[in-house]
Computed example of a mutant assay.
Amino acid sequence: MKWIIIAAVFIGGAAGTYFRYIINFQTLFLGYPIGTIIENILGSFLLGLFAGLITYISLKEWVKAGFGAGFCGGFTTMSTLAADTFFLAGIHPVVQPLVYLSISLIGGLTFAFTGFFLGLKIGKKQKSREVTIR
C-alpha cells in the first residue's frame, strides 16, 4: 500500500511541475514573475478547496497524497518565490520585491481560505445528498 502512495505523490508531483512550467513559460515575456504568483495563488486555492472537500468526503489516502503533496506541492513553489524576490531586489527598488511578496503571501492565504470554505460548502452539500439518497 505504501508504494501506491509514493507512486501517487510522484505522478501528482510530475503533473504539478509540468503545469507550473507551462505557466512560467507562457509568462516569461512579461519580465515580471507573474507566473509564480499565478501558480502559488491558484495552488493555494486548489489545496484549500481540496482540504475543505475531504472534511466531508472520504477519499483513499493515495488520492489525498497524490493531489495534496504531489500535484499541489509540485505546482506551487516556495523556492522560486524566494529566487524571484532576490531577483527583483537586485534590479528594482525595494518597493517591487515587497509588492511581489505581499501579493504572493496575502493572495495565497486569501485564496487558500476561500478555497477551504468553498470546499466545506461543496463537501457538506455533497454529503447531505448522499444521506438523502440512502
Rank of each mutant, 00 (worst) to 15 (best):
A83Q: 14
I57D: 06
G35E: 12
E39A: 01
G31Y: 08
F50H: 03
F29W: 15
I106P: 03
L120K: 05
I106G: 00
V94F: 10
L42D: 05
T132S: 07
I122C: 07
M78P: 12
G52N: 10
F50C: 08
G90R: 05
V9Q: 08
S44R: 07
I91D: 05
G123W: 12
A51M: 09
A15P: 13
F19L: 13
F87N: 01
S102D: 01
I103C: 00
F111L: 15
Y100M: 05
G48W: 06
P93N: 11
T76G: 00
A51Q: 11
Q26S: 15
V131E: 08
G123N: 08
G115M: 11
L53K: 03
G115D: 11
L118M: 08
L42M: 02
S128F: 08
K64P: 11
F67S: 06
E39G: 01
V95F: 02
K60F: 15
K127I: 12
F113Y: 14
A7W: 09
F29A: 14
V131G: 00
F29Y: 15
G48A: 08
T114K: 00
G66V: 11
L109I: 13
A82M: 09
S102W: 02
F75I: 10
S104T: 02
G70R: 12
I38G: 00
G31N: 02
W3P: 03
F50R: 13
V131Y: 07
F25P: 02
T17E: 14
W3F: 15
Y21E: 15
G35K: 11
T36V: 14
V94E: 04
E39Q: 01
E130H: 13
T114E: 04
L88I: 07
A14Y: 13
V94N: 03
A112Y: 09
T77K: 12
T85N: 10
N40E: 04
I6R: 07
L59S: 04
Y18G: 14
A82T: 11
G35A: 09
S58W: 06
F113P: 00
Y32A: 08
F29L: 14
L59V: 10
T27M: 07
L49K: 13
I54A: 00
I103M: 05
G74A: 12
N24K: 09
G74D: 10
Y56P: 04
